[in-house]
Structure formats: C-alpha cells, structure tokens
Nucleic acid binder design. Structure first.
Length: 117
DNA sequence: CAAATGACGGGGT
DNA sequence: AACCCCGCCATTT
C-alpha cells in the first residue's frame, strides 16, 4: 500500500516488546524522511482498542513526547514499565532499549555489504 | 492567502 | 533541566 499512514503503522507494529524507537526513525524507516510529525499525527488517530504498540515510539533522545500532566504520558510510562523499559523519569535509555530495525530485504542487504568488500 | 498548530528534530543559552 | 528559537510538514484557522 502506498498510503503513508499504512506504512507508518506497519513499521510501528514491528517494534518488539521491550524496545523503543523515535518518531523520526519510524518516518525514515517508512520511507518518509523528515515526516516525524506525520508519525505523531497518525498515532494520535489510532482508535481506542488498537493493538498497535504506540507506546514504543518516543521523541528524539528518548524523551516521552507527552507533557507533564497528560494522561497519555502516564499511560505510556506504565505500558513501557510493564515490558521492562524504565521511563519513569520521562525519558528512556535508547542505548539499552533502542530498536535497531533489521533490513527489510535481508538478501539485498547481504548483497550491498558484499559490494563494499 | 497568511498565521497558527501540533504525539517532531536539533542547537543554543 | 528548562526554556527559547527555528526548520520542517500537513492541517486547520
């Protein structure tokens, strides 16, 4: 599907439990560089019962995007804590939980590496 | 059409 | 850490 929203959600759904990534990274991974804000907008439109792991997406540097006092902020911190990701300080350690998305096409990836050697 | 508004990003103070 | 500013982009005023 060429729909940007669909591609964005496809990326978010692949973030494994206990891992997190940033809005900008999701956008880039979805083939939409410089569209971090679009990622936020798409996630904000998720229906109530959605199973999409939106809580695994944080702002640059591991910051929780929601402001102090926002219900969603506590919700996100709670969900992350439930999967072993400490976010109680309003920020997660990307060095520990940052998700390194694997190349979508492993064969082509291997080819490119081989091309450099 | 100009200005304001965001689940953003990066830099500077 | 807490702000402020500006760049960026899609939507809404």
């Amino acid at each position: 599907m060429n729909d940007p929203a669909v591609r964005i959600l496809a990326v978010v759904e692949r973030i494994p439990r206990g891992k997190v990534t940033t809005y900008g990274a999701v956008a880039a991974r979805a083939g939409l560089p410089r569209r971090a804000r679009l990622v936020g907008r798409v996630l904000s439109d998720l229906p109530a019962g959605s199973t999409v792991p939106w809580h695994r997406v944080v702002a640059a540097g591991g910051r929780i995007a929601f402001p102090q006092g926002a219900m969603a902020r506590q919700e996100q911190i709670e969900r992350l804590g439930r999967e072993g990701v400490v976010a109680s300080t309003g920020r997660v350690n990307l060095r520990l939980h940052g998700w390194q998305s694997p190349p979508e096409d492993l064969d082509r990836w291997l080819w490119e590496i081989g091309d450099e050697n």
